[in-house]
């Protein structure tokens, strides 16, 4: 996540100040900014993503469908492969008896695919994030807005805007 141009990093101690800062950034339609927080806050997500759901759900659905199919197929095909007739007239492919395996495989693969979705969508492991995001305060008690790709007068303008929103510290770093 390297950025061209100048980066402005604002540190906020208050949630309402951060929300004001994000609103200003959204109003200006800045294309490249990151917000960091020590905890999930719905105010942040709603402002930035405007209620658009995370695509992780597609990973979950795909994994669950695959798992269910794989589980039922495993039980059915192995029983057909070695046709072991069990007394009491049970059919080789017994839907009720195979439901447990199907359910377990649905849950297992659904979870595994969700984990893969999480890793892919969050771009984990993310050891190479820009330095401004790695401020230790952002995992403790402060929030942050990092705006990338600013140039010329916009740098000073955003520095002032973020301070006006309530940032306790605003720093500017050069081009990457």
């Amino acid at each position: 996540m390297s950025a061209e141009g100048t980066t402005v990093k604002a540190v906020f101690a208050h949630l309402d100040s951060l929300v004001d800062g994000i609103a200003a950034v959204k109003r200006a339609r800045l294309p490249d900014f990151v917000v960091t927080a020590p905890l999930p806050r719905h105010e942040i997500e709603e402002l930035i993503y405007e209620g658009r759901p995370s695509p992780v759900r597609w990973f979950t659905l795909t994994g669950a469908i695959f798992g269910g199919t794989a589980g039922f197929s495993l039980a059915s095909l192995t029983h057909l492969n070695w046709p072991m007739i069990i007394p009491a007239g049970k059919p080789l492919v017994s839907v009720p008896a195979f439901m447990v395996i199907t359910f377990e495989a649905t849950v297992f693969w659904g979870c595994l695919a969700t984990l893969i979705g999480l890793i892919v969508m969050c771009r984990l492991p993310s050891f190479g994030l820009q330095e401004e995001v790695t401020d230790a305060r952002f995992s403790d008690d402060c929030f942050g807005i990092i705006i990338n790709g600013l140039a010329g007068a916009a740098v000073e303008e955003w520095k002032n805007k973020l301070l006006a929103a309530g940032a306790i510290e605003v720093t500017v770093s050069g081009s990457k």
């Binding site: 990151v34 020590p38 942040i44 997500e45 979870c111 969508m121 984990l124 993310s126 994030l129 995001v133």
Partner: peptide, 23 residues
């Protein structure tokens, strides 16, 4: 895993966490 609590990370994290709970 290099977690930094960015808006992107929290968004997908909360969605995934809900699915894990549902499963």
């Amino acid at each position: 895993l290099g977690w930094r609590g960015t808006d992107r990370q929290w968004r997908h994290y909360m969605a995934a966490y809900g699915f894990f709970a549902a499963f």
